[in-house]
Simulated assay, not measured.
Amino acid sequence: MEIAENAALVVVDVQKGFDEEEFWGPRNNPEADDNIASLIDAWQATGRPVVFVRHDSPKPGSPLRPGYEGNDFKEYVERRRGKGAGPELLLTKTVNSAFYGTPDLDAWLKASGISQFVVAGIQTNMCAETTARMGGNLGYEVVFALDATHTFDLVGPFGWRLAAEELARASAVSLHGGGFAKVLSTADVLAGVGR
């Protein structure tokens, strides 16, 4: 798949608080961080725009609350911020979708003439998926780099529990099969960047 010269990379909530396993539980895809780093590097090397999204949780006990170390970006992301040749945006939010953050992502993308973006980050089935779905609803061409995301086991209604990998697969099927986004591997996204 061809990745546009001005396609944005939307890096969702890659924050230290997600490393607190005792809070979140078991996760999937240990390669996610390396894949996210590879995507950021490719975007910065080619002058494409990067959007860094940070979740500022309003919940007092959240590892992502402002003022707590867990709110900070993971070190490998923080080291890369401000290093690219292309435009960069820092966006903060308190809900699942980056489209309900500050500054206004939709307005920024439109002002920049961007119609395609790639989603990577945490969590696959929460903020990454919600951002991708809204992007699809708003008419963007959305690419979801599945292996550049990860999530955690989750308990739902009726005592149902799904493992992180099951949730990731369900997100991929819903996004791709539902027409919200094209779900690709990091390798396929990078191949599209190199064309």
Rank of each mutant, 00 (worst) to 15 (best):
A7I: 04
D41T: 14
R161H: 14
V53M: 11
A37L: 04
L167S: 09
K182P: 01
P103S: 14
K16W: 02
L190H: 05
L138I: 08
E75N: 14
L105S: 05
A8G: 13
L91P: 04
E165A: 15
A128W: 06
L154V: 11
V14Q: 04
A7W: 03
F73A: 14
G67M: 11
A128Q: 05
S185W: 02
S171W: 06
V77K: 03
Q44A: 09
S115I: 10
P87S: 15
E22Q: 14
M126T: 12
A170E: 04
V183I: 06
A37K: 04
T92L: 09
K182E: 10
L9R: 03
E129F: 03
A42L: 07
E141V: 08
V143A: 06
Q116A: 08
K93I: 02
V77E: 01
N35H: 13
P30R: 15
L109P: 00
T92I: 13
I122N: 11
V53Y: 06
K16T: 12
T94L: 06
A42K: 05
I114Q: 03
V143P: 04
N71C: 15
Q44M: 02
K93R: 09
M1L: 11
G86F: 14
F152D: 07
R80L: 05
G135Q: 01
E5N: 10
D72F: 01
A85G: 15
G139T: 13
T46G: 07
A128L: 07
V12N: 08
